[in-house]
Write a protein that binds this DNA or RNA. Structure first.
Lengths: 335, 335
DNA sequence: CTCCGCAATTGAATCGTTTTAATATCCGGT
DNA sequence: ACCGGATATTAAAACGATTCAATTGCGGAG
């Protein structure tokens, strides 16, 4: 059980502990030959600095916490990658926790991050966490919301304009000649879902002779998509929508399976379909899926930027960055 | 910037810091009325203990690092969930890093975990890390390999018997009457892939009149699966295999798309298909996919158990836990 | 030849918690 | 009335890196 400390290194190198620390943190303050001697000692002894001690002294960690709704969702995996890359540029690391859409797990991770005095927290919130985050801020730990804007602008956030995305999706379906649109998604309590629905409504209202049916789901999963799809094909042909906008790609994939594969209903001829997120899988599904692309990695990277800036200067103005989503047309919705 | 410390709590409660610490860590040693007073003070001041100081004193953290090959892969997401749940039972948290199949990222996470004096490390290795892990062990940080056994048994590991899995898959295809089997997977440098291939070989060798063709891929992705699928259907009908065993489900899904959807080749009639992992998606793909199931969550949980046991008693014998995979038959390979 | 200023280096104090040895308090038993 | 022995509580010493005020050494200006 080796326990190599700066003290050991200092002794071996024949200098003081202060100098060893300086070699590691401000090499410009140390004479080149000294640097060399110290670095050799570090290498010889296999010294690795103890981050706990460093943190204790510094008051805060050099790691950023990231809490996501679902690690399994490729959207978040990609977002995490973007955040990691950006953080690494400044010598920070990202520590990821998975709330799995459960308020208690989310809360447990916030506790953990508070105890660890994280440099900051990125969170895609599930429950109502603004109070918790406010508290963290008082402790000197800033937070940035990802994938959802703060209701009261009291926190910086990075998201995409879900309303615009919903509108783009439905505009596209309508311009392809569709008239009986169905929106599939839920629970509507989730902000992203309600915004995408609001966008759909706005589009439908702007066009004459177009109807919008809302089919609510209990979750944004493949399974729920399949269930809804079965219900749709069970209807009389004339009762079916001629286009479906699914609140995310997982739902869309499920719909595709039950509508197209397990039944004889042609996509896009009888029913056009479009999803949201443009996950990697979308382009490679049975019928390549149209979708609304979110710049996931960019969202992660931007969030890290805002967070580090706020950590440097807590008085800094909060910023709401909103990216425009982008319509990606593939087979599933071609006229 | 509040900085509530045990000292503040002690003052407020009118006791010593030692007592405050005892209230938090060994309440049985403290008189009930005192406990109450201290807890009220903690609540009033909103005290949160500083984990860095705690760790510094304790010598090691109460967190376990987990390095996975790919967060996006549902198999690892599930494994992580299992590990988190088990760790939480003992008051540990899991901190996840994504090596993304890159040796430098993997190494960076090992550095980080070493600096943080993690309680232990779970790793699904990509590069050759045994030297690094040995070093960690000397520092008092045990490691357990997940999803791959240690070449030299010098580390505990939890995995499934990939050879047996491969054999099961091909046995099943053969017993369904198939004779021209193709194995699709790669790069073969990855242990899991070569083992599954070895299992396939063993099965083929045990049966007369069965041939095995190996089609190597550069990665285990949907895209690679599609590419290989296109190549297969481009062949003359008589040159095609009548069954394909894909080294994981992502490949299998890709194959399914190009073989079944984008061409007129019937699955399973003309070509039977089976994957590996049994990810959630498998049961809900176009043609429900047969697969070899790995108990992902159980693997994660078991790995945590071994790790914590070794952390408690470093002299403990290493253990190689190997789970038997399970054949799951669905439409894609029915005779 | 002395003294100033600059660069390099030192050593002690510090961060906040846990832990341990020592002290204070109380109780029934003799 | 006193004492042995729990039981509760305290004060002080760690843990290991960082930092800052203090010190040393040195070359050049006067």
């Amino acid at each position: 059980m080796s326990a190599v400390s700066v003290r050991d290194v200092a002794q071996r190198a024949g200098v003081s502990v202060g100098t060893v620390s300086n070699v590691m943190n401000r090499p410009d303050k140390v004479a080149p030959p000294t640097i060399e001697v110290v670095q050799r000692a570090i290498a010889d002894l296999g010294f690795v600095r103890n981050d706990a001690a460093r943190q204790l002294r510094a008051g805060r960690s050099r790691a950023v916490g990231l809490i996501v709704l679902d690690v399994g969702n490729p959207f978040f995996a990609e977002l995490a990658r973007g955040a990691e890359d950006k953080a690494a540029e400044s010598g920070f690391s990202i520590i990821m926790g998975n709330s799995n859409q459960k308020a208690d797990r989310e809360s447990a991770y916030l506790d953990l991050f508070e105890e660890q005095r994280m440099h900051g927290v990125l969170i895609s919130p599930f429950g109502d966490v603004t109070e918790r985050l406010r508290r963290l801020r008082e402790l000197g730990i800033p937070a940035v919301l990802v994938d959802r804007p703060a209701a009261d602008r009291s926190f910086s956030s990075v998201s995409v304009d879900d309303v615009a995305g919903g509108q783009q999706a439905v505009d596209h379906l309508i311009s392809g000649g569709r008239r009986r649109i169905a929106f599939v998604g839920g629970p509507v309590g989730i902000r992203q879902v309600s915004d995408r629905l609001a966008g759909s409504r706005r589009s439908v209202d702007a066009h004459d002779g177009v109807s919008l049916e809302v089919i609510e789901t209990t979750a944004l999963t493949v399974r729920e998509g399949q269930r809804v799809g079965r219900d749709i094909v069970a209807r009389a042909r004339t009762e079916r929508p001629d286009a479906v906008f699914a609140a995310n790609d997982l739902l869309a994939v499920g719909l595709l399976q039950s509508i197209y594969m397990q039944s004889a209903v042609d996509v896009p001829r009888e029913i056009a379909l479009i999803g949201f997120d443009d996950v990697e899988f979308a382009s490679s599904s049975v019928v390549p899926l149209s979708s609304i692309r979110q710049p996931s990695a960019l969202i992660g990277a931007t969030a890290v930027e805002l967070l580090l800036a706020e950590a440097d200067d807590p008085a800094r103005d909060r910023q709401q960055v909103v990216f425009e989503p982008e319509l990606v047309v593939r087979e599933s919705s071609r006229p």
